[in-house]
Amino acid sequence: MLLFQHNNLRSVEWVGIRRELAAALRKVDDSLAADGRPDYFGDGIKLQIIQKGIFASALKVVEFYHPEQQPQAPVHHPTDPATATSATIPDTLAASDDTRLTHGLSRTAHEVAEANRRNKKLKHGLEPLLSGPLVLVTFPTVSPRHLKAVFEILAPSKEFPAPKRKANPGYHEPAVQSGLQKLMVLGARVEGKVFDMEGARWVGSIEGGLDGLRAQLVAMLQGVGAGITNTLESAGKSLYFTMESRRSILDDEQKAQAGEAPKEG
């Protein structure tokens, strides 16, 4: 997700920005579909204003609460005859503080997340950025090509140039340009890691998307492997020649001691 700070955007500005962003993402999806790629999900990328307090609380739950680590609820209901007990337990509705409730909005989730938040060693990394009016751009999954399109629309730069007026006149409407001037990139969160603005731009600049990144990684590993092989091979050759030279010297010395003249060449 990308995190922006905004400054009193008007509704007409929001409409124009959302329209241009949706059009840019649709072009990326069309390009991916033409290449036979299944990872086109532009419709799932959302631009929305958030309430800072609610978002911070939700982020604590997502980051610090792990329901799979909570005690499991009993398989059988207390009044089920299959339950191994002779006690009479009234069949009542679960209260809000029932520890069997472990969903994200439960009291258990809130208490666990709040307790972990007090631990200074546990941080989600976005604490310094959660100030002022905020806007989020959320992605269903990591896609450098979609991220690049978002930057070209919402935060154009030299690396991510904005659409030309001739190619996209709607982008240069006064309402859209006025709204874009009120947006400022704060950072991003990718695969659980927090990036500043430059780091987020680096993710968007990966050529070929994730496939390009995988290709770069494979090429780098192959280069490292070839370098290690050459180093080991050269070291082995050097050791072999050294040992052969030493063996030849020892043979000559033994022959000299036996009264035989060493052979030339």
Rank of each mutant, 00 (worst) to 15 (best):
P163T: 04
G208E: 15
R117T: 09
L213C: 10
V176K: 00
Y65D: 01
P71A: 04
D97Y: 07
T99N: 02
P156N: 08
K27S: 12
K123C: 06
I228F: 15
D39Y: 15
S234K: 05
K27I: 12
K27G: 06
A149I: 05
Q257T: 03
T79L: 03
H6Q: 10
L101M: 15
I89C: 15
D35K: 15
A167S: 14
V137L: 12
D97K: 04
I50G: 12
P38V: 11
V150G: 00
M1H: 06
G53P: 14
A82H: 10
L217C: 13
G208I: 06
K52T: 11
P163I: 00
P169N: 05
D35G: 10
A94N: 15
G259N: 13
D196S: 08
V75W: 15
A235I: 03
F195R: 07
Q177C: 09
L32C: 05
A258W: 06
A95Y: 13
A167P: 14
Q5F: 07
E127F: 00
Q216H: 03
V112K: 00
L213R: 14
P169L: 03
Q70V: 01
G223F: 02
T231I: 07
V194P: 03
I50T: 12
G187V: 05
S248M: 02
A162G: 02
K148V: 04
P81M: 07
H66F: 06
Q216S: 09
F64Y: 08
T102C: 05
L134T: 15
A162H: 08
K182V: 09
N230T: 06
E111Q: 04
K123Y: 06
L101R: 15
N7K: 13
T102Q: 08
H103V: 00
R145W: 01
D39R: 10
R189W: 12
V190G: 11
V12I: 05
K263W: 11
K237E: 11
A58E: 12
T231S: 13
L32D: 05
P144I: 13
L129H: 07
D39A: 09
L147Q: 14
L59M: 11
F151V: 09
F160D: 10
S245K: 03
N116H: 03
T138M: 06
V218A: 08
L134N: 11
G225V: 01
A84E: 14
Q5V: 02
R246I: 01
P74D: 03
L186Y: 11
A34C: 10
A24K: 04
H172I: 01
V185Y: 02
R18G: 02
P161E: 14
A109L: 01
S248C: 08
S57Q: 09
A94F: 07
V150I: 00
G236T: 12
P71I: 05
L180C: 00
A56F: 03
K182G: 13
N7I: 01
Q48T: 14
S11D: 00
K123V: 00
S96K: 13
A87M: 14
H172M: 00
G42S: 13
V12M: 01
